[in-house]
Simulated assay, not measured.
Amino acid sequence: MAQTQREKSGVAAAATSSSSSADAAGVGPSPSSQVGAGAGASGGDRWGAAIGNLTELGANVESLQKLLEKKAVFVDDDIFSKASLAADQARTIKILDQRVHSLERELDAAISAAARARTEKRQAEAAQRAAELRVQEVTKELENTAKVFKLHMEELRAKQEEIAKKESDIKVLEAIIRTLSSKDDGGSSE
């Protein structure tokens, strides 16, 4: 009785190890070839998929039998439960390790994105400083142009005043000349 129980435990252990090795090797029916995979598949496609599944299942059974013949180990329930726990822990560790690698890749991507953002910020700040310098230059040019314009306006006003003064002097002289010529005309006629 104890030996029968050990044989069952050994077969279960071998089945567990073979299924975990089959899972790791990717052996087993593929999801795409399962029966009823496509809702709109024709009857012939379904039969073909079913036959493919049966063929794969037969290959898996043969592989399991060969594995049991070579590596069957008979253990008691305590050892089997410890081995199952160790296998579960190994799977959990593998999943956690994959998650760590995934998080490391995400962190690297985030660091790269932050570096790009800092570079773009520096470039934007440099462009802003250049634009501010250009604004200062244009403002100085405008101020200088305004000063030059103001000087030209003052010169034009001064010349206009000078011209107005000369015109008034010319009018006075013309009036004097008219007065003198009218006296000369009046004095010569007497």
Rank of each mutant, 00 (worst) to 15 (best):
E167M: 00
G48N: 14
K165F: 01
A114I: 02
E162H: 01
E120M: 09
E132D: 11
S30I: 02
S84E: 11
G36F: 04
A15R: 15
D184C: 13
G186T: 11
A2K: 15
R91A: 13
T145I: 11
S17P: 02
S33P: 04
E7W: 10
A87I: 11
H101A: 15
R99P: 04
A175F: 06
R6V: 00
A117P: 00
E69P: 01
A130P: 00
S21F: 14
Q128A: 06
R129A: 13
T139I: 06
V172G: 04
A124Y: 09
A2T: 13
S189M: 03
A115K: 13
A86K: 11
D97L: 09
S20P: 00
L96K: 13
S42Y: 02
A113C: 11
V35G: 05
A117Y: 02
E161C: 00
D169E: 02
R116A: 05
A90W: 08
R91S: 12
K165D: 04
I79A: 12
T145R: 10
V138W: 09
G52R: 08
A124M: 11
F149Q: 07
Q136V: 01
Q89T: 10
I170E: 07
V172D: 10
G43F: 14
I95K: 11
Q34C: 09
S33M: 09
E162R: 02
G187C: 08
T16C: 06
R134P: 01
K171G: 05
G186Y: 13
S42E: 07
D88S: 15
Q65R: 10
A164Y: 04
A41F: 02
E69K: 08
S21M: 15
Q5D: 05
A130W: 00
S33H: 07
E62V: 15
A158L: 02
S168R: 12
L68R: 10
